[in-house]
């Protein structure tokens, strides 16, 4: 797995010994939400996903944003925050291999939470249009994908809200 390189260039676009497709595939295979998808299909997901890099302190997205991607942390750590009127609450920490924000793959929704990079973070992202094209193109795998995805996303979001401590309650 890639570690962040020089600080001004958190991820260089090439200079890999393996091609990006294989690397992406390896990452997806280790994420439970995707690992059950047949390999030939998963290669297409790997092919349609894109890398994004964030510097420490940057927001990946803000609560209330319209964003159309699901994210997997490739390297680094990020924090999930719920932003309230006067303060924000720390909900959870996202580490390498974690999948989040997947609800945006299904519909055009506003983000329920913010995510902020703690260290330099590299993510693998998949956008809604690509996700939908895959569902349409492979209807027999679609139901399975939907089923697993939704279960995983619910688990993930449940975990987020369980972690919510009782500070800042009015």
């Amino acid at each position: 797995m890639n570690s962040p390189t020089e600080s001004d260039k958190p991820c260089s676009s090439a200079m890999r010994d393996r091609c990006e497709l294989d690397e992406n595939l390896e990452i997806l295979r280790n994420v439970p939400a995707f690992s059950a998808i047949p390999l030939q299909n998963l290669r297409l997901y790997a092919y349609l996903s894109r890398r994004r890099c964030y510097r420490a302190g940057e927001f990946l997205f803000h609560q209330g944003d319209m964003d159309d991607c699901g994210y997997i942390v490739v390297s680094g750590t990020a924090r999930v925050l719920r932003e309230l009127k006067d303060c924000s609450i720390f909900l959870n920490e996202l580490k390498e291999g974690e999948f989040f924000g997947g609800l945006a793959l299904f519909s055009d929704i506003r983000r329920l939470f913010s995510v902020r990079a703690v260290t330099d973070v590299e993510c693998l992202t998949l956008d809604r249009e690509s996700f939908r094209r895959m569902l349409l193109q492979f209807p027999d795998v679609s139901l399975k994908v939907l089923d697993i995805m939704i279960k995983r996303i619910v688990q993930m979001e449940e975990k987020l809200f369980q972690a919510c401590p009782d500070v800042c309650m009015l």
Binding site: S13, A14, M15, R16, D17, R18, C19, E20, L21, N24, A46, Y47
Partner: peptide, 12 residues
């Protein structure tokens, strides 16, 4: 186009 096409990579 290395930045776009993921199916191969170039060595330094």
């Amino acid at each position: 186009r290395p930045a776009l096409h993921k199916m191969a990579s170039l060595s330094p």
